[in-house]
Design a protein around this nucleic acid. Structure first.
Lengths: 234, 234
DNA sequence: ACAAAAGTGTTCGGGATACACCCATGC
DNA sequence: GCATGGGTGTATCCCGAACACTTTTGT
């Protein structure tokens, strides 16, 4: 569809989408279809930018085109510009197939986001291959320097993470304090003391207890909490 | 010297160099020579990147070429890619004079650094115009979106600043606690309580008192301090 | 003597950390 | 009754914030 002159051959965006499933942190990857030469590799969703397109805009588009994801709050975090970043042998064949200038240097502006996996069941986009969630502890070798990009993104995510309103949106509307703690632990990768964690949460006054309890668990059922509504902040 | 084909027409780097002079925070700007059409404008040191050149490398080069500065620890902080960022009327003439493709879109990878002004007396580089320090409270209208870039850089600087070893290098080898406090205040733009500040500094154990005192001041002379040497960290 | 900045201690409150036992439910 | 996670309180330490008077020097 888009003509060559509408594409900037030197600049791309890549998106590192972290998904939380209630237990573990995952990353969204694109798995290329086997295009006949035994090329089957995973990579981050990303693409060359179009002319006239802002960077943020481009990242949104890419995510929509490759994984049918919309309304993800993307955060730009770093630009990767090693002149050899798309020059490894492992990537040569792919570039020759998909790029009109396979030897052209590409710098990439990288974005990350953290979403609730349940809200985003990635639709395999027929043309690009398949989008899939992969546990961050089991990330395979990726195309280009994408392993490195994921590492940097994870570091940023961890250092910037805090339990604000958007963080609570990663949980179901009613949740237990333990689920909340697991969210925190899954992202920061460090264990917390249960009592201290609960005291901290209570102090922050962002959530309130409901009358409901867990059902069908084979232990004492936990109380369910919810985010305080705007008005109840009186 | 460099031929056109060695330059990437779409990607530039820009450097926001903050300089501390003992009292105030300044920014390094390049003032173009008057090129005959009443064009006289200030901008950040920056340039299109060369092919085969890494981004960090490019930023170092630019700083050397435009302001004769070397060994500055640059930190990449954001990439600006609005498709219209180099399209304002005020910049048209300059682009036509200096760029072979004046209408080409340019995205820029921005870096910042904080240096001691005394160490870097910018050498006017004959070909580019004049490098000069400008107080951050008196920044004039700059070319392109450079005012915006400076604002973002300042925010990053302020939020990431801490009194570590490199921060102490912004002061003379022997300094008073008041000078240290002024440094902190100049950067974060907030006033601190003298006693609390001193307690905090003492706690951190990075510096030690010397026997020397200020001379020639018309008030009680302050004691001079220095950074602790590596060995004395026993 | 006066101006000008140097230097110094205490109190309070909040948050981080460490730590151990009883409780409610399903099976 | 037993296994499983739910739920709770106290003591300590460190840190940040607030706050006012005496000291030393040059003129």
């Amino acid at each position: 569809m888009s003509e060559l002159k509408d594409i900037n051959p030197n600049i791309s965006v890549d998106c590192v989408i972290f998904g939380f499933d209630g237990e573990r942190l995952n990353v969204l990857l694109i798995e290329e279809k086997d295009i006949g030469q035994g090329i089957l590799r995973k990579r981050l969703p990303g693409d060359l930018i179009h002319r006239g397109e802002g960077l943020d805009e481009s990242a949104d588009r890419v995510l929509w085109e490759l994984a049918s994801l919309k309304n993800v709050h993307l955060q730009q975090f770093h630009t990767f510009g090693d002149p050899l970043r798309v020059n490894a042998e492992k990537d040569r064949k792919w570039l020759e197939l998909y790029r009109s200038n396979p030897k052209e240097r590409v710098i990439t502006v990288a974005y990350y986001a953290l979403v609730k996996m349940a809200d985003f069941v990635p639709n395999p986009s027929s043309f690009a291959g398949e989008a899939l969630w992969v546990d961050i502890r089991e990330i395979p070798e990726l195309a280009f320097d994408h392993n490195c990009i994921v590492d940097v993104a994870l570091t940023k995510l961890q250092s910037h993470f805090e339990l604000n309103k958007t963080a609570y949106e990663l949980l179901p509307p009613r949740f237990t304090l333990n689920q909340l703690q697991q969210l925190h632990e899954a992202i920061t990768q460090e264990e917390l003391d249960k009592r201290n964690f609960r005291k901290k949460i209570v102090r922050e006054k962002m959530i309130e207890a409901t009358e409901e309890k867990q059902k069908g668990v084979l232990h004492k059922p936990a109380r369910l909490y919810r985010i305080k509504s705007e008005d109840s902040l009186a």
